[in-house]
Design a protein around this nucleic acid. Structure first.
Length: 660
DNA sequence: GTTTCGGTTCTTTTT
DNA sequence: GAACCGAAAC
């Protein structure tokens, strides 16, 4: 099959796509066809260089990016990229680890702990060590410190000391928690997200034959969003690519927004130092945005000192100026956005799916959500709580988890704590009495559990026992199918439990229906559970709307908007303290990253851009406080923006909820 | 001694 | 919302 590469690509892109073997770095500014370049590179390798797709490794930052690129590459080459390894770093590591887990002392069916699991386990560790104290860091904070240390490949002690420098924190205690947490994970046969990367790297470093086989196999390694790789990830890439040295990294240092997770812009800035023979290509021609939006973007980023100087060159004709909307408060902002969205939709020029509202933090969207609901406008929320991490989803996955990994104490505790008269304490004692192990295939073990449960809880369990293990059927079959397992669990217990527990039980049960449909796609329970842990809500959203792309307005954080584009973009709460976020300024003292985040937001827009600046925000005590416009707004030449004072609206009337 | 319930507080960003 | 805390209920 013939593909005319020169016709599909501009000169810059074509040079990158057809580059010779050896290390290649592509600096791709926003909207310059980064994905196009990567997908065409894959097509080029397969079609022109006749590389077997199974020998190409494509590492991406999100599952969505991987899915999109694979689909596009597949279209380009006419369906011949099957077998290409594509996915996130975590996925790639997981894939290797499943195969070689024993080498590191794990069972092949190790459980992946999501954030919620990890936090619970940490909490238990803190309690066990008797460190529960007002002044001791909370589990999510500890998780953050441990994660940062792991991802930067730096000792926990160092990270903890730096993080708690200004507080009198018991660093010794923190280290003890870390050690115990590690032990517990081992006992559970479980890895958290960081362990996947750490152990993936260890596997390669400590087991020469494994490393050699992957190095030999991966003839070409392509990495997307290279500016957001951390130490572990860049080491991983360097190791895998060391044999053939066909490494192509694509990224944009201006869009590095994950340093808080250990990402190092240094990786992209020092690429040439590590690969002196690297060919470097720059993509600067922007096909996405109108010139005024690009000019705003260029001015924003000019405030940052970076090494790869580049200017976005517009290719589109001039159109409307970006709008700076001066608003009274959050309520006003919400009504203003609804009004603008309405007008865009009425004009017929912009479909709902081409409108996005972006913000720094999830909670910034609360008022708008209410206003959109009131206006009966549909929206899709890429929300804070991941689909798979919602309480009800986790509840129904306890049985599959125990089947896959009988040592999974977290799943066990979650399961029995749903029963009456069983709380954390009882669950812990039960687990001990069961020998810290519950194999559901073992009838005697199940009987033992029934025996140990308090009377009120026993009937709950017996209903489950009868549904799951009817005496006449052959036992194992149900257990191997997560959808069937979940379905029976619903019938025996959870439907009723949900009705009693949740106000919105119906909606939650609908989620579970979706979950069952999703799980039916997987061959076995372990694989399904891995995917569940590694997919974010963004991908879940796509799965849920499969077949019919959601034609609704999108509400999303800027972080999750990375790599996406819309005709119309509205950015909320451009106010000092919210954007830039006060916390990120004090903790990391890194204004530059917040500025890059703003740059990412602005460069998502193709035609229309609104920057919203309310004057008042709610204070913690329920009152209101004045706020200064974001410092980033001041960095933009006022002549570039059209000011909208939105005079037709009034501030939200105060609500007298409390007598002064 | 535990579980359960009701009220209060607080929200950065994600695999 | 959901995580936390304190007090009532078993």
């Amino acid at each position: 099959m013939d593909l005319d590469f020169a016709q599909h690509l501009n000169a810059e892109q074509l040079r990158a796509v057809t580059a010779d073997d050896g290390p290649v770095l592509v600096i791709a500014a926003a909207g310059t066809g980064k994905t196009r370049t990567l997908t065409h590179r894959v097509a080029w390798l397969v079609l022109e260089r006749e590389v077997d797709p199974r020998r190409i490794l494509l590492l991406t930052f999100t599952n969505r990016a991987a899915a999109e690129m694979l689909a596009r590459a597949d279209r380009l080459v006419g369906g011949h990229v099957g077998g290409l390894w594509g996915g996130t770093f975590h996925h790639a590591a997981n894939r290797m680890l499943r195969r070689h887990a024993a080498l590191l002392g794990y069972g092949p069916d190790y459980t992946i702990l999501d954030e919620d699991d990890a936090t619970r386990l940490l909490k238990a560790c803190v309690a066990e060590l008797g460190l529960k104290d007002k002044k001791f860091p909370k589990p999510p904070v500890l998780a953050g410190v441990f994660g940062l240390a792991a991802n930067r490949d730096v000792p926990v002690e160092e990270t903890a000391k730096a993080r708690f420098a200004s507080h009198a924190v018991d660093v010794d205690g923190v280290l003890k928690v870390h050690a115990l947490y590690g032990q517990r994970k081992r006992a559970l046969n479980a890895m958290d997200f960081d362990d996947l990367l750490v152990n993936g790297l260890r596997l390669l470093r400590e087991h020469e034959p494994v490393l050699a086989s992957y190095q030999e196999r991966m003839l070409h390694v392509l990495v997307d969003e290279y500016q957001d790789t951390n130490k572990l990830q860049s080491d991983f890439v360097d190791l895998i690519a060391a044999r053939h040295r066909n490494l192509l990294a694509v990224g944009d240092d201006f869009q590095s927004i994950y340093s808080w997770r250990g990402a190092e812009v240094k990786n992209i800035l020092s690429f040439r130092a590590r690969y002196p023979d690297a060919q470097i290509f720059k993509l600067e021609e922007n096909y996405r945005s109108v010139p005024d939006i690009l000019e705003v973007a260029n001015q924003i980023i000019a405030g940052n000192p970076e090494q790869y100087q580049k200017v976005l060159r517009a290719t589109r004709p001039a159109a409307v100026k970006p709008i700076l909307a001066k608003l009274a408060d959050g309520g006003h902002q919400a009504r203003y956005v609804v009004e603008k969205v309405r007008r865009l939709l009425e004009s017929g020029e912009v479909p709902p799916g081409q409108i996005a509202v972006l913000y720094r933090s999830h909670y910034h969207s609360m008022e708008l959500q209410m206003e959109l609901a009131r206006a009966r406008l549909d929206y899709v929320l890429m929300s804070g709580v991941r689909f798979f991490e919602q309480a009800h989803v986790k509840d129904v996955c306890t049985l599959p988890r125990l089947v896959a990994n009988p040592a999974d104490s977290l799943a066990f505790a979650r399961l029995v704590e749903m029963f009456p008269k069983v709380g954390p304490r009882k669950a812990q004692n039960l687990w001990k009495d069961l020998g810290e192990h519950l194999n559901l295939r073992d009838a005697a073990k199940r009987a033992q559990l029934a025996e140990l449960l308090p009377a009120d809880a026993r009937s709950s369990w017996q209903a489950i026992e009868e549904k799951l293990f009817p005496t006449d059927a052959n036992d194992g079959a149900v257990l191997d199918r997560p959808d069937e397992l979940v379905f029976r669990f619903l019938e025996a217990f959870y439907n009723e439990f949900a009705e009693d527990t949740y106000e919105n039980a119906r909606q939650r049960l609908e989620d579970i229906e979706e979950l069952m449909a999703f799980s039916a796609r997987y061959k076995n329970t372990a694989e399904f559970l891995s995917e569940m842990a590694l997919l974010t809500n963004l991908e879940a959203e796509i799965n849920r709307n499969k077949g019919q792309p959601a034609d609704a307005i999108r509400l999303t954080t800027i972080h999750q908007a990375k790599g996406l584009e819309w005709q119309a973009v509205i950015v909320l709460w451009l106010v000092d303290g919210m954007f830039p976020a006060a916390r990120s300024l004090e903790e990391a003292a890194d204004e530059a990253e917040e500025r890059r985040l703003f740059y990412v937001a602005v460069t998502r827009a193709k035609d229309y851009l609104w920057l919203c600046v309310p004057r008042l925000r709610k204070a913690r005590d329920g009152g209101v406080m004045m706020c200064a416009p974001s410092r980033f707004i001041d960095e933009i030449d006022p002549g570039l923006l059209q000011i909208d004072k939105a005079g037709g609206f009034a501030a939200t009337p105060p609500r007298w909820t409390r007598w002064p």
